[in-house]
Computed example of a mutant assay.
Amino acid sequence: MTQQPYLSVRNLSKHFKPAAFSRGAVVKALQDISFDIPRGQVVGLVGESGSGKTTIGRSVLRLIEPTSGQVMLDGVDVTTLSGAQLRRQRRKMQYIFQDPFASLSPRMTIGQVLTEGLDIQGIGTRAERRARAEKALMAVELPVDAFDRYAHEFSGGQRQRIGIARALTLEPDFIVADEPVSALDVSIQAQVINLLRDLQTRLGLTMLFISHDLAVVEYICDTVIVLYLGRIMEMAPAADLYARPSHPYTRALLSAIPSPDPATRPQRQILTGDIPSPANPPSGCVFRTRCPFAIGACAGEVPALREVAPGHLRACIRDDIL
């Protein structure tokens, strides 16, 4: 019997309309995105800036409203919920923000930051809420006396641990981690990534992990989704995708990963030109304007995700470049 995925996203699209009285075009940030995350697994979203990674994460949690599509979380269609129903569902799903300083109010103690969600949800007494917050601090390896201090008293790595603790206080099943280490020094990144990996395993969390760092994604994710201009280019188990990338865009991204051994470094594949504007995407395959294998037919057909190996899908009309 096939296990029902914990998160199932179907045909998710997000279009941003121009501001009132503006002559700008509609920005098609996401187009027809579909994927599943089994319970207890980590799926990574990778791609250049502007590819739609953060928009997916925020749309899934209804931090922004999708234009169309369906998001099923543990069998519940999140896109149909409102008011008290959506508020209750938010106990199961939390967000770790990219910038650990900007996401923490300088006017609130760490204790107030950590218990705010519990207050909104009406969970526990004041003492019970404090106990939960202190438990979350210990889980991210911070002292419980951080409860009465302020964000400016902590380093960047410690502030990100506080952001992780805030996500844990409601004891969620699903977390979106949006570039959780990109704002940190390289020396601190590994510590936070190892902490996230340990928490995910120990607590059985299901996670959507957003990053532009493919080395980090390879380390922490079970499955990887490669995005370009709001569409999925390739999706595969992490080990398979890194060993046998099928899409030209994926190959270009992987070729840019630094390698300590020059002998094992793949030949660098440089993409020409800039990523097009999502307000005016290319017809057909959105990657065709930068693809070294593009042919005339690429302009007239939006490639569907097709299975090229068990569990390995890519969006390309050409079978001769596998």
Rank of each mutant, 00 (worst) to 15 (best):
Gln89Asp: 01
Asp185His: 08
Leu253Arg: 09
Arg126Pro: 00
Ala252Gly: 13
Ala190Met: 00
Gln41Glu: 11
Met108Ser: 09
Arg268Asp: 01
Ile123Met: 02
Thr80Leu: 00
Ala127Ser: 13
Glu65Lys: 01
Asp320Ala: 12
Arg202Val: 09
Asp119Val: 10
Ala133Ile: 07
Ile225Glu: 00
His15Phe: 07
Val217Gln: 05
Gly311Leu: 03
Leu253Trp: 11
Phe101Met: 07
Glu153Ser: 14
Phe35Met: 12
Val26Leu: 06
Phe21His: 13
Cys316Ile: 02
Ile123Arg: 02
Pro143His: 15
Val26Tyr: 05
Ser8Met: 06
Glu234Arg: 11
Ala239Ser: 09
Tyr95Ser: 04
Phe147Gly: 00
Ile110Tyr: 03
Gln112His: 11
Ile295Phe: 08
Ser22Phe: 10
His312Ala: 14
Leu199Trp: 13
Pro258His: 02
Leu63Met: 15
Leu195Ser: 08
Thr201Met: 05
Arg268Tyr: 00
Ala256Tyr: 06
Ser13Gln: 04
Ala315Thr: 06
Asp178Phe: 01
Ala165Arg: 02
Met1Lys: 14
Arg161Met: 00
Asp185Leu: 06
Arg268Lys: 07
Ala165Asn: 01
Ser277Asn: 15
Gly57Ala: 04
Arg130Cys: 02
Arg10Leu: 09
Thr125Asp: 06
Gly83Ala: 07
Val226Met: 09
Gly230Trp: 11
Val42Cys: 14
Pro266Asp: 03
Ala139Asn: 05
Asp173Ala: 01
Met207Trp: 04
Ile164Met: 05
Val71Leu: 04
Met233Lys: 10
Ile225Lys: 09
Tyr6Gln: 12
Arg166Met: 01
Leu86Val: 05
Glu141Asp: 13
Leu305Ser: 08
Ser51Lys: 09
Gly47Trp: 11
Pro310Gly: 03
Arg231Trp: 12
Arg268Ser: 03
Asp99Val: 05
Gln158Lys: 15
Gly122Pro: 07
Leu199Met: 12
Leu86Ala: 14
Asp213Leu: 00
Ala165Lys: 00
Arg202Asp: 07
Leu7Ala: 09
Thr201Asn: 07
Ala20Gln: 07
Glu153Arg: 15
Ala102Cys: 01
Arg244Trp: 05
Phe147Ala: 00
Arg265Pro: 03
Lys14Arg: 04
Pro18Glu: 00
Phe147Cys: 00
Ala243Leu: 10
Ser59Met: 03
Glu171Trp: 01
Gly230Asn: 12
Asp74Ile: 01
Gln269Pro: 04
Gly52Leu: 13
Gln85Ile: 00
